[in-house]
Design a protein around this nucleic acid. Sequence first.
DNA 1: TATGAATGAGTGTTCATTCAT
DNA 2: GATGAATGAACACTCATTCAT
Lengths: 207, 207, 207, 207
Amino acid sequence: MRGQHEESKQRRRSEIVRAAVDVFAERGYFAARMREVAERAGVADGTLYLYFKGKEDLLVSILEEYAEAFLLRARRDCESLADPRDKLRRIVERHLVSMQNDRALAHVFQIELRHTRRFLRRVARGKVAEYLNLLQEVVREGRNGGVFRRDVPPELAARAIFGALDEQVTAWVLARRPGELRGQVEPLLKILLAGLAPPADEEVDHG
Amino acid sequence: MRGQHEESKQRRRSEIVRAAVDVFAERGYFAARMREVAERAGVADGTLYLYFKGKEDLLVSILEEYAEAFLLRARRDCESLADPRDKLRRIVERHLVSMQNDRALAHVFQIELRHTRRFLRRVARGKVAEYLNLLQEVVREGRNGGVFRRDVPPELAARAIFGALDEQVTAWVLARRPGELRGQVEPLLKILLAGLAPPADEEVDHG
Amino acid sequence: MRGQHEESKQRRRSEIVRAAVDVFAERGYFAARMREVAERAGVADGTLYLYFKGKEDLLVSILEEYAEAFLLRARRDCESLADPRDKLRRIVERHLVSMQNDRALAHVFQIELRHTRRFLRRVARGKVAEYLNLLQEVVREGRNGGVFRRDVPPELAARAIFGALDEQVTAWVLARRPGELRGQVEPLLKILLAGLAPPADEEVDHG
Amino acid sequence: MRGQHEESKQRRRSEIVRAAVDVFAERGYFAARMREVAERAGVADGTLYLYFKGKEDLLVSILEEYAEAFLLRARRDCESLADPRDKLRRIVERHLVSMQNDRALAHVFQIELRHTRRFLRRVARGKVAEYLNLLQEVVREGRNGGVFRRDVPPELAARAIFGALDEQVTAWVLARRPGELRGQVEPLLKILLAGLAPPADEEVDHG
DNA sequence: TATGAATGAGTGTTCATTCAT
DNA sequence: GATGAATGAACACTCATTCAT
């Protein structure tokens, strides 16, 4: 049957992507060997090329498979919540918890995906751009709703939020004895929400 | 004279480091060829190895030469100012302006220096750690002085500040049509200072 | 079929070893280029490394492939003969004739295999040691049988035999107009057999 | 004064040659660095080239300085003795004792001087050829005097003598726990003299 | 589809030698 | 003569990718 076939193909693809995450996290992208990915996935060298164009495509696929899923969940979260501050809260929480739940993946996201300018510009930042757009949207909503300040450009605010989050994760990934990421949700939110809150003297739009 | 000799040696070293910054920024660290660095610096291939152990040492030296200078200036700034909020303002300003003034260097800092976990952990993050320590110190002072909030760990706050700054620079480096980094100083400071300000309900230490 | 596969693999391996013998003999080990060996064997550069660890392993393999075969034949010869003098005669004959039949190989044996102390000690001399052991065994037998002198240590005698043989081959290999090695069998044997014969005044063991 | 100057120049030259012997013996010719030779001799890198054409010339000079001296002494020995058997005895003794007295030099002679065919043919074997000529001369005298056999070509006999000697030294140089070379003089002579003695049935020339 | 043997492009680094001082 | 900083040619090996089976 066709469907079954498709499904098994998809499953193998995912297995290979997972193997790549683990190998890239262990060895680093450049030191990682396609052969090792193949071995870990339980297939022959050549089989990798039936599913992926090459080594870089494998990296891209990691990003697509996992970042896409993350973005999807984040967008759904936002749809299900009304207050932009709640949306932000949920995003921060999901971001940190997701990373904590899969350290190998976090490693790949924080380090391996940032290798070359070309890659960064064309691929990785594409997903980051989507993420930044989502954050920007939330910020914009908050501005319009009067719960976030209007005196900073939403793009800048979105980048600040992402950067603050991103750096917590990077530090955690590189730490020899990593602590808890989840525990950083609340303190980080305090800073971000206070930082985004309208200043006392800000004129409010009284529709 | 010995001093003159030492001096000319140091000058040549710096010329090579500069050539490396430019080549690494243009091609990326891995795609960069030592030969190209040598040509750009106006020396023979082998001469590079009289001044540096190898390609990676060249990367490390970039970090050391420029990051060290940046840190030194940042520390001096802090010493010359009393209010932690002013210190933060000056650091943010210096960070963004320094990067804007040397885009090739910014490129190397934001992208090329993050290549491998080993390198990141052992070398690049060493300097970041120093920077984070400086930020942490400022935050701590602010807490003690009652101008910054006490309900978030200073390490986390420092990472949030650094991350927010870092992401602005990365976006600027990757942008096809980069705008002004300097113009982001004030809006970013608004967010950071508001985010760090003591909440209205925080108990204040009245010495 | 598995056997066929193994067989073809073995054949290719031998072809590469042969190519290496010829190239090493022509250019010398250090001046020889792996690329040239590959070309001569009709394979790609990288293929060499599927069969051998590297350039030195190729040298070792020459020794193993050919010296092993020589030693095997020499041992069989000895087993098939009773009189130690006949054994010696056969060894000398085989040694000189083998070399004469493959001058490129002789070149590699006499010169290229002696390059570095480390190599000599660990590898080449291992085979020489086996050869010396065989010669020693023959000498010892001759002593016990009363046909060889007892007043010299068998190890020394074995080395003298080997050295005398070896030097004939070296001279032949280096000669611009090499003569016949085979013709040296009889005169050399005269010296060796007379040199090893028990002296007139030696006490004989009358079982 | 000119003579003094020449003398000091000659002394420095010898110091460098000695340094080369030691470094080549320790590291092997190829692994040896000119810089190390210079350091050991207490001169700057460039100074080596005031005394020698290059690395290979240094090797040649070792041969010339030491082999020449050896040959000279050997020739004098022969002149001072009448009986060819005594000459052979003295040569064997000198050969083994000289080597034993300078193991580093022996190492260079037995191994490092045999590196490349070109070198071997043009240089090293030149000295060996002189040595072989001397041995041949002794053998020829012995033949004429009726004390050595006539049924083997003197060249072959000379090579057999040299080879037998040479192999004792090589084994000693490569031995991890080298014994005494001097002790091998007598047993080796027994074999050689017996091997060269006229066979019982040989017709004797009664001039 | 899957295999895995074969391919071959690509480069950092060493070190003998030179030569301006 | 002596120095030693500078030169630049030279090459084994890896590994992502292909393709005949």
